[in-house]
Simulated assay, not measured.
Amino acid sequence: MPEAAFYYKNPAAPRPNKPPILGACAIIQYRSTYLMESRADSDRWAFIGGAMEPEESLEDCILREIREETGLAVSPGLLQFVGVYSDPSRIAAYPDGNIARIISAVYWIVLEDEPVLHCSKESRQLQFFTIEQLAPLTVAETQLDILSDFIEALL
């Protein structure tokens, strides 16, 4: 089965054949660890997130994505807006032939209670990592800028 491919600041990236995808992702913290998913569509780790549906706000989008991908029901009051990542070189090429620029609103969520996670079909694995463990992960290239900024802010 073909895998998704992700690009960031890569001149060899394919040209998008679809409109940009607006979505959201979450940096989910529990104690001094951060949640990542091993994506089922590629050999990459990523923050929880996905594309916004036409009837959703960005906040609704990230709450839905968290619920679908982890089983967690997060209170909207826990969402802390981090920023928007819109570099035009953030490109995703999906196995169905769709190629799109990815624009992501990023939220930070700090969990007080130890979460019980349920892995969806979109993920191979859900795992919390320390900040030191995040840097060497093979991360979806469309999230490299987010991860880099996040690690820099924490160190």
Rank of each mutant, 00 (worst) to 15 (best):
P76D: 08
G97P: 15
E122G: 13
L22S: 10
R101T: 10
E141I: 07
A24V: 02
P95A: 14
W108N: 08
Y34S: 03
I102S: 05
I28G: 01
C25F: 02
P19F: 11
D41Q: 11
G97Y: 15
A40E: 07
R31H: 03
D41C: 14
D41T: 10
A93W: 13
G97C: 15
D113V: 10
E59H: 02
A135Q: 15
S57L: 02
I66S: 00
A93V: 10
K18P: 03
P20C: 04
A24F: 02
C61K: 03
A24M: 00
I99W: 12
L63F: 03
S120G: 02
D96S: 15
Q133S: 06
P20D: 06
N98V: 10
S89W: 15
L126D: 12
K18C: 15
I48D: 00
V74W: 01
D43F: 13
T142N: 06
R44G: 08
S120H: 04
L126E: 06
I62W: 00
E53Q: 14
G71E: 08
L72F: 05
P20K: 10
V110Q: 10
Y34G: 04
L78S: 13
V139T: 08
A73L: 14
A40H: 03
Q29K: 14
I48N: 02
E69C: 00
S120K: 08
S42D: 11
Q29Y: 02
P88S: 13
P20Q: 12
V74L: 06
R67C: 01
L63G: 03
A92D: 05
E141M: 11
A73G: 04
S75Y: 04
D113H: 15
Q125S: 10
A140E: 09
V139Q: 03
I28V: 07
S57T: 15
L58G: 01
P115C: 01
V106H: 03
G97D: 15
G49N: 01
L63I: 04
Q133M: 11
V84M: 09
D43T: 11
E65F: 00
R31Y: 01
L144Q: 14
G49I: 07
Q80N: 06
E141T: 05
L126N: 13
E112R: 11
V82C: 09
L78R: 12
Y107K: 01
R67I: 02
N17A: 12
G83C: 03
Y85I: 01
I28D: 00
G71K: 02
E59I: 05
L111R: 09
L111Q: 06
A93I: 12
A46W: 00
E114R: 14
L22A: 08
P54D: 13
S32F: 10
I48V: 06
D41I: 07
F47Q: 01
